[in-house]
């Protein structure tokens, strides 16, 4: 089976459509959305609709912190522009979509794989995986062989042997990486809708479970249109500007 992992779409319609089209060409059998469908971008309702449509076709989706915040209009602890975006997003969604978001599961266990939005040892604290320490905390908290998560908007791949600390690999090319069975893996996804690794292309990955290979893809999309819509919606300007530079 070929599974696509898409995380942190953040209401970016153009980026999502480009990744869905790319994934269709990659002949994926299932899509897993790893949270933060909305927040920041100008098309939260469209994105939620497309994801629900995919769920009807067998896709899985889990909850992200922005999904929860937008559904409840709960912005405590958020910075200024994130708060503005959440309030705007809350108003842009109908009650049915808010209910859909709030009812997404925190995590899903699928054979030897775990799907979760943020660091897995305490998913509700929405902690980031940014270094060896946080990766180790996440990996040690689970018996799953491979964990898929998002939240930091930077693609990273950690691998860890039983008695050793994890090692970081930053995928740079769309090369199939064999997830060797003698160790645990933590596949942190880049963002579909708001990349922050200095590469503005939309990020997602495909796992081939037969070959046991994970491929990190980067997909060009219409950034200008996505940015114009953010301006038109009077969302904070920085949310549009950062799309062009991937920061």
């Amino acid at each position: 089976m070929r599974i696509a992992f898409m995380s942190d779409i953040h209401g970016n319609r153009e980026a999502l459509d480009a990744c869905l089209a790319h994934a269709a060409r990659q002949k994926v059998d299932r899509i897993v959305f790893l949270g933060d469908l909305v927040g920041y971008g100008a098309d939260p309702a469209y994105v939620a609709d497309r994801v629900r449509e995919q769920i009807d076709k067998g896709a899985l989706a889990i909850l992200g912190n922005h999904d929860e915040a937008a559904a409840r209009a709960e912005t405590s602890g958020m910075n200024d522009y994130a708060r503005q975006a959440i309030e705007w997003t809350h108003d842009a969604l109908d009650e049915e979509t808010r209910q859909f978001l709030i009812n997404l599961p925190m995590q899903i266990s699928d054979e030897d794989r775990l799907y979760v939005h943020s660091e897995a040892s305490s998913p509700r604290s929405w902690a980031y995986i940014t270094d060896i320490g946080s990766a180790e905390r996440s990996l040690r908290s689970t018996g799953h062989r491979v964990t898929f998560c998002g939240h930091v908007h930077k693609p990273q791949l950690y691998h860890m042997q039983a008695m050793k600390p994890p090692v970081l690999f930053v995928p740079q090319t769309a090369t199939g990486i064999p997830l060797m069975g003698n160790r645990q893996w933590l596949a942190v996804q880049g963002a579909v809708g708001q990349p922050r690794d200095q590469n503005p292309l939309a990020a997602y990955s495909v796992l081939d479970t037969t070959k046991n290979e994970l491929t990190y893809h980067r997909v060009p999309y219409d950034i200008e249109t996505a940015a114009q819509k953010i301006h038109a919606a009077r969302l904070p300007q920085i949310l549009a500007a950062r799309l062009f530079i991937g920061r």
């Binding site: 050793k164 090692v167 690999f169 740079q172 090369t175 990486i177 160790r183």
Partner: peptide
């Protein structure tokens, strides 16, 4: 060069 170096650490 495009795959993790398992020997690195």
């Amino acid at each position: 060069l495009f795959l993790p170096d398992l020997l690195e650490e």
